[in-house]
Amino acid sequence: MTKLDKNDRLIRISLLVVAFSAVSVLAVITIFIFEQGTPIMFKYGLKSFLFGQDWYPSEKSFGLLPMIVGSLMVTFGALIIGVPLGLASAIFLTEFSHRRLTRFLKPVIELLAGIPSVVYGFIGLMFLVPFIRENFGGPGLSVLAASIILGIMILPTVISIAIDSIRAVPDSYREGSIALGATKWQTVRMVVLPAARSGIVAGIILGMGRAIGETMAVIMVAGNAADIPGSILQPVRTLTSNIALEMGYASGEHREALFATGVILFIIIMILNTIANLTSARQKKR
């Protein structure tokens, strides 16, 4: 069909090399993080890393459990806040609002996705933390503050992906349901949402990945105590903030332990990514 001269083959090969850049970057990152992080995990035992409760690197005590629990807690908290708000907004904007309002609000919400995370953290520090301290007690820097800030941060992601997947549901579904005498809400609940489910789930998982991977905003509002919080008003440290807080000065085994923190974070994210990929692949197949 086309002239396949020597040049073209050369181009094809060099493009193939370039095309592997992303894969090789991923590979190099994985190798470096694991190379730096795993030796110390095996030296002190995987169990003491994953289930140890004391993080005192100067005493060679590297328990990461408080940070693992911390990351899961704030991520869960973020979902509790972000998902209902996000889903409700998406449903409202696709099914119940004026088309013109949606045309205006959707881009506005998407624009806000670009606001840097430090700005979210700053707003949390200035307004949310004092509010929590004065009204609920405790230091204000807390699981609650981190959850709310992360919940807000994942809103744009959750909303825009949910909107896209709800929109992708064919109108004939809705018409069929309405024709059977269902109200609009019944249609949404029983027909549209189930049809859009896997897209919505993929959006939630993406938001979850963003929440668990967020660093700077969390450092600013979480208080960073390396202890399993007893209540949502107590400070908490996540895996990401553990790395960022101590990376500046760490050396020797302390630094390796921070890379080990990175390894655990990496594994969690990879699992989430795979799940997200699988769900969105399922959505595409439909």
């Binding site: 004391d54 820097l141 101590e246």
Partner: peptide, 21 residues
């Protein structure tokens, strides 16, 4: 372990200056 941890003198000062306790 319960202590709040910050990564600079400035931040420690800022937090102490905002929290009466």
């Amino acid at each position: 372990k319960r202590a709040i941890v910050e990564d600079s003198n400035g931040t420690v000062r800022e937090i102490v200056s905002r929290d009466p306790n």
